[in-house]
């Protein structure tokens, strides 16, 4: 048994040796690919969205070669710290909890208010059922309020739950909900909004200080010359800087 594992390792070793070397350092950008307008997979099957454009521009400014990879939201942080990609750029709000494990660049969006999506304007939040995606700040918020929380694995399922009446409302980032509410006459955003989280930033390994500094500088330069604001307006990601 043990011998077997070792042989396969050796195979893997020699295989990867063959294509070692070559071009310079590539930075691998990890994203979810299921959270428009931040990031999603377009008809061509490529990563697209606000963060795609932003990330490409940042890499250009920092003179890095970048490559996009998608990963399930559930395991996006463990895979970063174990080195399968170098950054998380996936609409991830900067929170204290996450900051203990990974590092964030400065935020590249204003703190995005979280909005409620519902079928009618007079939903009783405290008495009703609220849907949220598992492992998001919104899910934690709803649980903390003591409201009835219904958790789904993907954002898509939370919207479906409101549509079919399984949940009375859902809580998520406003910029994610806005296009959905505009398109579907049945659904609307409530006037009430919550300010949770400290804006979205890029996540990096704590040991990767150098890379973080590079991206930080690039974000700053985009903030300074207004290109970031233009992107925010284009993709309708809340307030500009």
């Amino acid at each position: 048994m043990k011998k077997l594992i070792l042989t396969t390792t050796a195979l893997a070793l020699s295989a990867s040796m063959a294509f070692a070397g070559g071009h310079g350092k590539t930075v691998r950008m990890g994203t979810e690919g299921a959270y428009p307008p931040y990031n999603f997979i377009n008809d061509k099957g490529e990563v697209d969205g606000f963060e795609r454009e932003l990330g490409d521009e940042l890499c250009k400014r920092a003179q890095l070669t970048c490559e996009w990879v998608t990963n399930e939201w559930d395991s996006i942080i463990p895979n970063l710290v174990s080195g399968n990609y170098d950054t998380i750029i996936a609409g991830m709000s900067i929170t204290a909890e996450r900051d203990e494990v990974i590092d964030f660049t400065q935020n590249y969006t204003q703190p995005d208010p979280s909005a409620y999506l519902a079928k009618s304007a007079d939903v009783d939040l405290a008495g009703g059922v609220l849907a949220a995606q598992t492992g998001t700040i919104q899910a934690a918020f709803v649980a903390q309020q003591g409201w009835t929380l219904l958790e789904f694995a993907t954002p898509e399922e939370t919207v479906a739950a409101v549509r079919n009446g399984e949940a009375d409302a859902l809580l998520a980032d406003k910029s994610f909900l806005k296009p959905i509410a505009e398109e579907d006459a049945e659904l609307m955003l409530l006037a009430r909004e919550e300010l949770i989280g400290g804006g979205v930033g890029m996540g990096l390994r704590e040991s990767d200080g150098e890379l973080r500094a590079k991206f930080d500088a690039a974000i700053q330069s985009m903030k300074d010359d207004g290109t970031l604001n233009a992107l925010i307006v284009k993709w309708e990601i809340g307030e500009t800087f």
Partner: peptide
């Protein structure tokens, strides 16, 4: 869906993996 964070063993294991990132 899991209601009010009442889930099975895997749900909680997932919760901890998610929170501790380990």
């Amino acid at each position: 869906p899991a209601q009010s964070q009442r889930g099975d063993a895997l749900y909680y294991a997932n919760y901890f993996a998610d929170k501790t990132f380990n």
